[in-house]
Design a protein around this nucleic acid. Structure first.
Lengths: 212, 212, 212, 212
DNA sequence: CATGAATGAGATTTCATTCAT
DNA sequence: AATGAATGAAATCTCATTCAT
């Protein structure tokens, strides 16, 4: 399912063209990672790709097009990464833990790219929605299956999926992007406990009394 | 505690000045609500405020300044709204429910303004951080108090606060902003159940079996 | 002979007015000394004078007016300074030496103001011409008298006066304004020798042969 | 020795680019000759060069850049002109006379451009210093050689060079630029006599006695 | 006299996009 | 395919000057 392929961008036929297009995409990734969509200029992209300004328009009809392609690309990459991380796990909670961990690691690794997605909200809303819908649907499907098996409680799957994505997003932003990510695991622990047992977690109710 | 007052914006001495400045702020709120920061032009703001273009620069050094003031303002308003909503509630969970509900209502009511905050990430990062830190700190403080009283489990307060804000933010975006907000309460129900008991909520484990 | 009084600037009647006007002039002197005429703003002048913006226009019809007044003022001050320096001297050459020395000292002391005069060429040409004509005429008159007495050779007085002013101006700029004025006297010596005996100065022809 | 080339101005690759850049420089020369740097607008320059407004910024980063290039250009042209004028002359005094004459003629011919240099003091001081230093150094070198040969007296070469440039500048301004240049030679005569023999010139001392 | 808010013309500068080569 | 020169619309920002109080 190749969701986001914007059909307006031209696919080159020759190998040379392939290479140039790829160079542009990589340059764009680096540029958009460092600056705002508005701050980024085609000139800067072509400069880093070491091609002439006009060459850009051979492959992309406008600035937005390459940006959107990047967003869709990232969405696909993240989805694949999460799927791979979750695959080995057998229990639902193992999957959750693996998923959150993989997400935080992905965010830490692609720090800049993550801002690109968020910016899509203001550059190309459809791409932005597509990003969350794509991930949300896949997530919801997995959660539904778990509900059917009785591994987790029954919730409205989409609400549940978005709530969990919300946690991942915000925690990732606050404790991975804003801060130097010293150790990810303790954060995963806290989040997982909340996700599993909620605020009223019995395990957390008793322990503090003893600790203090 | 007037956190975000950009000291570069000038406060007028006379009443006439006060009125003009206020008119500019209101016009800006309406403009930024409808367009991207980049799309919005000072000219449009002054047009709506019914003052000359140059007048803008009597009170604000540049577009960013008024934008930031708006963000800080919103932060303060939201904080106040949440505080008021929560005040009447006696139990922790009552407070949570009231807080989420109030947030979703606020988002629905100020639909456009909410985009303004999110954009701050790309227009003025400090203002953006300030927004979440301010709310997060207040939230974390309330949660800490609840932990001390044994009303909820022991978590790292800041992580907990950001996780819950993450849920509110994402659910608000997905089910309040992207969609026509038919009924908020059912969504609040789902969210609250998750927040209280987690994925393994016993109440939700049994019921589905009966339902099916 | 009150050459430069621009009649368009208003002379205040009350003492308070006198003080304000004076404060504006002094502020303007300091501002124009630090910046270009274009860079200088009325706002900056009134800020330094500690009066409101509008007050400026009570005393001066526009920016140029205060600038021109400053130029004419400087011209008068310099003329007076030179006259005083020359007064005690009895021989023509003593006068020349005293005049050059006084000029360099004046330039060093009013370093910034000197730029104000030069700028007049581009801000208000009449004021600029007035400056050089006033000084040039006075100088030419003195030189004519010396010629009549046979103290110096017969030259076209105005050409002579401007040539000598040219030396003073350029040497002052290069060796007093561009550089830290370590010692003025050696420069005066060189200049005076040239002015008295020209390039073919006998005193300077012989000595080098011995030196080398 | 291409002293003043501001490296920020872009040199075009193609012939078409060369032509456009040149057209801009010529238009700028004509505009700056007629108006103050501040009065001159990029729009006026591009209008005269018959290119679009934006084209200016393809070759120059801002107004100052083209202005400075003009100043450096003029400096080079003047230097070349003076060198050529002086070349044929064998005696030092012949050279001086030829140099002064050539300078006055240059000033008369490029009347407007001369104002451009003077303005540099307020637009880009380094360019202004460069102008005088370049000419001054070349002049000083020639004078030093003459001193070594015993053709003229021993002076501090740089002081001497600037003093003579000062005469040229001021006389040029007063009697060539301010006035319609009826005849240049009589002025050159007066100046040369002063330069050669100084105020105490014997040739000029005797004649007046007979006149009176 | 003094104030300071309001004006609006005007200029620079940016850059996505087009196009001729 | 690739190039890079040319375009021109659009927006920000400045500030001298006016004017009502």
């Amino acid at each position: 399912m190749n969701v986001g392929t914007t059909s307006t961008s031209k696919q080159p036929t020759t190998k040379r063209g392939q290479r140039t297009r790829q160079a542009l995409l990589e340059a764009a990734e680096s540029v958009f990672g460092e600056m705002t969509f508005e701050q980024a200029s085609i000139a800067e992209i072509t400069r880093r790709a070491k091609v002439a300004l006009g060459t850009f328009y051979v492959y992309f009809p406008h600035k937005q097009a390459i940006f959107v392609e990047l967003v869709d690309d990232l969405s696909a990459r993240l989805k694949k990464t999460l799927a791979a991380a979750v695959k080995g796990e057998t229990t639902r909670l193992g999957r959750e833990r693996a998923g959150f961990r993989a997400f935080f690691e992905f965010a830490a690794k692609h720090r800049n790219l993550y801002r690109v997605v968020r910016q899509a909200e203001f550059v190309d809303e459809p791409a932005y929605h597509r990003y969350y819908r794509t991930l949300g649907n896949a997530y919801a499907k997995g959660l539904s299956a778990a509900m059917a098996k009785g591994e987790i409680g029954r919730f409205e799957p989409e609400i549940l999926a978005f709530a969990l994505m919300g946690i991942a997003d915000m925690i990732g932003m606050r404790f991975v992007l804003w801060e130097s990510p010293t150790a990810i695991e303790p954060i995963v622990d806290e989040v997982l406990e909340l996700v599993q047992h909620g605020l009223l977690s019995k395990a957390r109710m008793t322990s503090p009394k003893e600790t203090k």
